[in-house]
Write a protein that binds this DNA or RNA. Sequence first.
DNA 1: AATGAATGAGCCTTCATTCAT
DNA 2: GATGAATGAAGGCTCATTCAT
Lengths: 205, 205, 205, 205
Amino acid sequence: MTDQKPIGKLAARAAIKGAKRDAKKRELAESAIEALKRYGYANTTLRDIAAQSELSLGMLHYYFENKEQLLIYCVRLYKEAFAADIGARIAGAKTREDLFQAFAEGLAASIVEEAETHRLWYDIRNQALFDPVFQPVVAEIEGSLMGLVERVTGERSDSLSTPVLYGAVDGVFRHLLESQIVGNRRSIPDLAEEFRSLLALASKA
Amino acid sequence: MTDQKPIGKLAARAAIKGAKRDAKKRELAESAIEALKRYGYANTTLRDIAAQSELSLGMLHYYFENKEQLLIYCVRLYKEAFAADIGARIAGAKTREDLFQAFAEGLAASIVEEAETHRLWYDIRNQALFDPVFQPVVAEIEGSLMGLVERVTGERSDSLSTPVLYGAVDGVFRHLLESQIVGNRRSIPDLAEEFRSLLALASKA
Amino acid sequence: MTDQKPIGKLAARAAIKGAKRDAKKRELAESAIEALKRYGYANTTLRDIAAQSELSLGMLHYYFENKEQLLIYCVRLYKEAFAADIGARIAGAKTREDLFQAFAEGLAASIVEEAETHRLWYDIRNQALFDPVFQPVVAEIEGSLMGLVERVTGERSDSLSTPVLYGAVDGVFRHLLESQIVGNRRSIPDLAEEFRSLLALASKA
Amino acid sequence: MTDQKPIGKLAARAAIKGAKRDAKKRELAESAIEALKRYGYANTTLRDIAAQSELSLGMLHYYFENKEQLLIYCVRLYKEAFAADIGARIAGAKTREDLFQAFAEGLAASIVEEAETHRLWYDIRNQALFDPVFQPVVAEIEGSLMGLVERVTGERSDSLSTPVLYGAVDGVFRHLLESQIVGNRRSIPDLAEEFRSLLALASKA
DNA sequence: AATGAATGAGCCTTCATTCAT
DNA sequence: GATGAATGAAGGCTCATTCAT
């Protein structure tokens, strides 16, 4: 042990520090999401976030360079969870039918259960259209979402390209989410059926 | 008879006043759109709008109750134009093929030529998810867009419902728009082909 | 007639014009009071006044130099009416008792029936404490009010001076008005009794 | 035992924080009063207040929710001091004569020495007639002022009620204040004599 | 590491006043 | 005489960010 180079010690200590810092950031971000998803990025102040989570205002800036970086961190955090969730759902599927069913249900369930969080995602994706700072995260996340779509539909270049298919699925998702938020509540199976019909169509090609 | 004249005159004068005011509002809104579509709703101040169009700040408030109402007016104005444009394009189509082609080309052209304006639309549609004030316009416009989709695909309840079809088309549109804005410029025919493949698929059902 | 000097004609015409103008000002002011007394001087815009009375904005400035002058004109107008009303009420009184009674009833009735208008008076009198422009009207009106008090109580320098008596009566009036406005409605006889007790006291000296 | 300490510490720290904040609010309010009493509520901007006291604009909003709340705080602050001052003056009086004298002198002195501050009080009391937000403070303060009057005159329901007596004293006070402000400066004994005559009158009942 | 007081640029909005018609 | 469109200075308020502790 003692023969470890001081440099190694320092590095290890630094790594631990980094890990601690990351854990704290994660904790802060999870609190922040709660506030953000409720009012949206533009309408949520750092004070709101601090107040709602019993965090101190200074701490937010201590861990995040600025509001933008906080948002980026938050969105990445939650979308990872979403992709992981959908990924888990479709992991066990054997037949194509099962696959579609699992995917459709996963999307439908998320619309009902995590409407506000998805709304936040659409919020930042929209911001990215105006502010390049957000474009990398959005690209990264859309990449993983496309990966999901591809896992479900397979690549069939003779028919629709993955990006287009992603666009279509996402568009339907967004539209159903909008209805949900605006007040037309629908059941999960009901919503799932919409996705299934879309997937079925795409698989006929 | 003669005593009816004054009344007629007054009414006529009032009508003219109203028309003039409407024309002016339109003019202001058109100027405002130029600024709004560049920076987005949240990042555009009324001062920006006034400065860019050489309007006085007070005038904006003289014609529009507040920033929200201005935006609503602007979005309605431009989306009407968009729907009218697409409508005109598909009006002459005889065969189903022509219809798809015209629609696909219209969408593709609009992505290339009016990218920024559509971006503004997505901005407000997103705002509506958080702020109910915007929901009526969004609903209205989405209604007319769905009408467009329906005219092109016909109603086929055995396959995809119009809302879902709209969602899919819109999703693809948005995705291609995003690519366009982020930097992957594609040609109109190229983009049109994507829409055609989507429509062709939907029509197979 | 024709032998009248041209100058005389012009003068006569000017006088007529002036009278016409005065009549119009009076009319405008009466309309303006309706708006002013509702929200108070500081909270009433010229637009409010114009809108509520179907007057044009420009006309207000055509007849009155500015908002201040309009207010001054309005207050003078209404307080003259008030003083005249009270004056008429006490004119017929023979005995000291009658005098007190008439005065007390006049004040009480005015609190109930013209609360809002008096509130406007207190508003401008208060403004005068900060803005000298209003001091002349206030002084003038308070002068006539003191005259009223003096007519009722007579001059009795051995006891309370008229200004002090005026202050006392006015203070009670204001206090009862405040109660009235804040919500404690009382009947006219009830209120009158308060004034009577005050006057009775003062007359004992 | 020892584990109670942290809790106690936290509570103590919170208490200190609160006390510090209160002290700061007081300090700000005292500065604000200087500006407010000079120009009146409606004519004093928060910028004026900040500039005159070398405070930052943001700080005013950091400590007070809005301009109204700032005013309310200010008025309560100074009127408490006034009531306390008068209270102290009459506390030592033994005979009824002493009481009247002390009270009269207190009022007179305050007119001369704190004219502007009282003017601010009349300003907010007037605002309260139009804006209910101010009514609670006004009611509270008038309550304590009536308490003062009652302590001096005692309750004599057979004669004037306390509210009426308060109205009368206040009316005289206001009138003398007005004269003072408008330019007729009088000496303290002179002014005190006016109050004494009024009180003497009331005590005869 | 953590806090929250303090800052001040910037935002939306109001409104008395002007002026072309 | 009369109108109301247009102006722009000014006001209350917000909020990301900084910094002393």
